[in-house]
Simulated assay, not measured.
Amino acid sequence: MSLTSPNRRSVNRALSALALVVVGIGAVTACSDDDSAAHQSTTQDDTGSASPETSQAVRTKLRMIDNGGHRLAFYVTKGSSSTIVLDSGGGEYSSQWKEIVPELHAATGATVITYDRAGLGKSDVVPGPWKVQSAVSDLKAGLEQLGVTRDVTLVSHSQAGEIANYLAQDNPKMLSGALLVDANLPPFFTDEEIPRLVAAAQPEVDAAKKDPEKPANRQLISTSEGFAAAHRAFHRVVWPDSVPARVMLSEKTPFEGSPEDARRWREAAASFAHAAPNRSLVTAEGTSHEVPTDRPDLVLKEIENVFAAQH
């Protein structure tokens, strides 16, 4: 049985997975150079020269990080030795967090970091299939080159949930806590669910292959390659008991058009959240999968709560 047509904007980001990339393919297209330019106006370049346009521009610096021969754009709003990292959903640029960063920095005093994953924003395109291990390597390398190796509060939306789970599993001492915002979680990707996602995405993947150079299509194609095997492996990832985590679930889920898949998404979130005493679950009422855009105030509040609990 294939999925009924879900919200196109949601799917690309939500499951980071194929269907999500597919469902949200329209969002990737919308996340254009204009969006990137808007973020640039609040940053400094690699030389440290600041734009006078806003006070935020004085505090935020663009750092280009090299990892394995490709460059990635990291945006650093310097604060205390504690660090909050905001990781965007599939197809999203760092500018997804532009409304939250200044308020979060002001509220916590922490260093706040956002970044563009490979192939997005100012970061280099890396040819071939999207591999979560490569994405984890990019994030870890960027943080280490910025001198961030501990006391990280990680905030991950949608597809970034996969990066968060692998990073936490392999580097638990780096993290002091995490907020997973309607994120991809291992319990969801069962042997029953993965074929449904693949079937739902296939028409969009076929269409994307007709114009593979288009950025949105490139993202979708790279995510679809090896999707089933990659997510069977993701299903086996174990979040460490030493890292507290709060799961923020959207009310509508990425699957508004498919009650069965929406039910599975909610059950997976609950299963993950109830697996350890230092995890919890909250539902963001009135939100779609795009929780950071729908209700940045709620996301800000939850980040502050997770951060405060560890400091």
Rank of each mutant, 00 (worst) to 15 (best):
A110Y: 11
S80R: 03
K61E: 15
E103V: 05
I84W: 06
D66E: 15
M64F: 14
G109F: 07
N67W: 00
T108M: 06
G91Y: 15
R59W: 11
T108G: 09
A110G: 03
T111E: 05
Q96L: 11
E99K: 04
T83H: 12
V112Q: 04
D66H: 01
H105F: 02
I100M: 13
G91T: 08
K78L: 12
I113D: 14
E103M: 03
V58D: 12
T60Q: 14
R63Y: 15
S80M: 05
Y93V: 01
G90T: 10
E92H: 11
I84D: 13
A110P: 06
E99C: 00
E92T: 01
K98D: 12
S88R: 00
H105P: 00
F74W: 12
S95N: 10
T83I: 07
T108I: 03
W97G: 11
S81N: 09
K98V: 00
E103R: 03
T114G: 09
S95I: 08
A107G: 01
K98Q: 09
L86H: 14
W97R: 00
A73L: 03
H70F: 08
Y93K: 07
R71Y: 13
V76C: 00
S94G: 02
G79Y: 06
D87A: 11
V76T: 07
G68E: 10
E92I: 02
G68Q: 06
A106T: 05
K61V: 13
I65F: 15
A107T: 05
G90Q: 10
